[in-house]
């Protein structure tokens, strides 16, 4: 197998032929933000976060699907790319309903991480507040479409790894949503093996395990009384 040498942000990298720029960047220790990319499943080049500039072409190319070539000069973090990435993330936040503070994925969310990575302190686009619905029909899992960024990682992991193909994308444009089975409640889809791969593949809190969400938390009515007793009588009893 032959090897290609290229530079990424000025760093020399050698990598086997057929590798993608994203793999080469990883090798070179250059972090390129991604959302729809998931190690182990096919790449679709949909989120456009990993776009890079390549000397000699005016077109921005997605690092996840673009193969390396000999002598390629790649720039991953030019001011233009930084601005476009930030706008992309802002568009995502304005598109769905991402209320981090009450989200099951808060602190463990790739969308949240990418927002930090691209320096997004607010979104310049008006929020759209679509009402996209939640499906809690599955006994173990739930899907909150409001938090979905349509990266299709769940679709691919279910199709390519589990082989069940429970998920796909329905409708088009702003009406797109992740559909289960033949557009039926998730819990009624016979093909679902309840393997939970989609839960793990989801970069946000859109697909989650039941019992972990803020809304499902059980109220502890006795807590207040406990605190009062503790403070006033110095007795830590329940």
């Amino acid at each position: 197998m032959s090897v290609k040498t290229l530079t990424i942000d000025g760093k020399d990298v050698a990598i086997e032929e057929g590798a993608t720029i994203l793999q080469a960047a990883k090798e070179a220790g250059v972090a390129i933000p991604t959302l729809c990319h998931l190690e182990g499943v096919s790449d679709v080049g949909a989120c456009r976060l990993c776009l890079v500039e390549i000397a000699g072409t005016s077109k921005l190319l997605p690092a996840c699907v673009t193969e390396v070539a000999e002598g390629m000069q790649v720039q991953t973090n030019t001011p233009k790319l930084q601005e476009y990435r930030r706008m992309t993330v802002e568009l995502l936040f304005s598109e769905g309903n991402h209320f981090c503070s009450v989200c099951v994925a808060n602190g463990n969310c790739e969308l949240q991480d990418v927002a930090i990575q691209v320096g997004m302190d607010h979104t310049r686009f008006p929020y759209r507040f679509p009402n996209r619905g939640v499906d809690m029909s599955h006994p173990s899992f739930g899907i909150d479409h409001n938090r979905c960024i349509l990266c299709t990682r769940c679709v691919r992991v279910c199709d390519e790894i589990e082989g069940a193909h429970v998920w796909d994308v329905a409708q088009r444009g702003a009406g797109c949503y992740i559909v289960s089975g033949l557009n039926q409640p998730w819990g009624t889809v016979d093909a679902c093996t309840s393997c939970g791969k989609c839960v793990d593949a989801c970069p946000t809190g859109a697909i989650f395990r039941k019992g972990e969400t803020t809304g499902e938390k059980e109220r502890d009515r006795a807590k207040l009384e406990f605190l009062v007793t503790a403070r006033e009588k110095h007795q830590w009893i329940r």
Binding site: F93, N97, H98, F99, S101, V102, D121, H122, T123, Y127, F129, P130, N131, N146
Partner: peptide
């Protein structure tokens, strides 16, 4: 910054 929780009513 985002309208956050109060804005959840916007969905209605």
């Amino acid at each position: 910054v985002t309208a956050n929780i109060p804005a959840m009513r916007n969905l209605m």
